[in-house]
């Protein structure tokens, strides 16, 4: 009775959109040559992989996969580097950041590959902290886009700001499920908000 299609739908949408953004970056990067864009591409690729791992853990029942480590760490890592890439324009800074991101992403991937043997997250506190960090990071990115929007109102800044606002709010809703009894409703609302956020990002990336 407790089974919900919402997480599966969300995971599929998440994978599809983030993978699309990653491919779009891969196509655009040789022309644009922007380190910041590359950071976005790697982050989106990482989120796509976390979504895939999450989907697998839901669908594969023969093996117990503890993908939550990879899910939370990978997504937090991806959001953190997007946030950091928007803070400074220096080429040197962005290059260092890119190297750091590659290292962190590889570590997160290793954690993902170790999912079958890793233990489950030990307590709700840690789970809430890891999950909640994504909300803070997304809202941080939303803040930066809002600042950019106030400086120069553009459709792209508006859509990206909207995307990260809804993603942040979605993660914030999910954060609450660890402290409420009716967690499924909160979870579904959170997933719904994240789907809106992802769709806003898709529209932003599609526009040229």
């Amino acid at each position: 009775m407790g089974f919900s299609w919402m997480p599966i739908v969300l995971a599929i949408i998440l994978i599809a959109i983030t993978l699309f953004v990653t491919l779009r970056v891969a196509v655009a990067y040789p022309q644009v040559r922007s380190t910041r864009l590359l950071t976005l591409g790697i982050s989106m690729g990482m989120i796509a992989l976390t979504g895939l791992a999450d989907l697998l853990s839901m669908l594969v029942t023969s093996v117990t996969l503890h993908t939550d480590w990879f899910l939370y760490l990978g997504q937090a890592c991806a959001c953190l580097f997007i946030l950091l890439s928007l803070l400074n324009n220096s080429d040197q800074y962005l290059n260092v950041l890119l190297r750091l991101q590659i290292i962190c992403s590889l570590v997160a991937l290793c954690v993902g590959l170790l999912s079958p043997i890793l233990p489950d997250l030990p307590n709700v506190g840690l789970r809430a902290t890891l999950s909640g960090s994504r909300a803070l990071l997304c809202l941080g990115i939303f803040y930066l886009y809002t600042t950019a929007l106030l400086k120069k109102p553009t459709r792209f800044a508006f859509l990206m700001g909207t995307a990260f606002l809804f993603l942040g709010l979605g993660y914030l809703m999910i954060f609450q499920k660890y402290f409420f009894v009716n967690s499924l409703l909160v979870d579904n609302i959170g997933d719904g908000l994240r789907i809106i956020g992802l769709l806003a990002m898709l529209v932003a990336v599609l526009g040229s």
């Binding site: 910041r36 324009n89 220096s90 962005l94 792209f156 800044a157 040229s208």
Partner: peptide, 14 residues
């Protein structure tokens, strides 16, 4: 250097 507005105000896919 990175264009300050790229990916903040300006669409990098444009």
């Amino acid at each position: 250097k990175e264009d300050a507005e790229l990916l903040t105000s300006e669409n990098p896919f444009a």
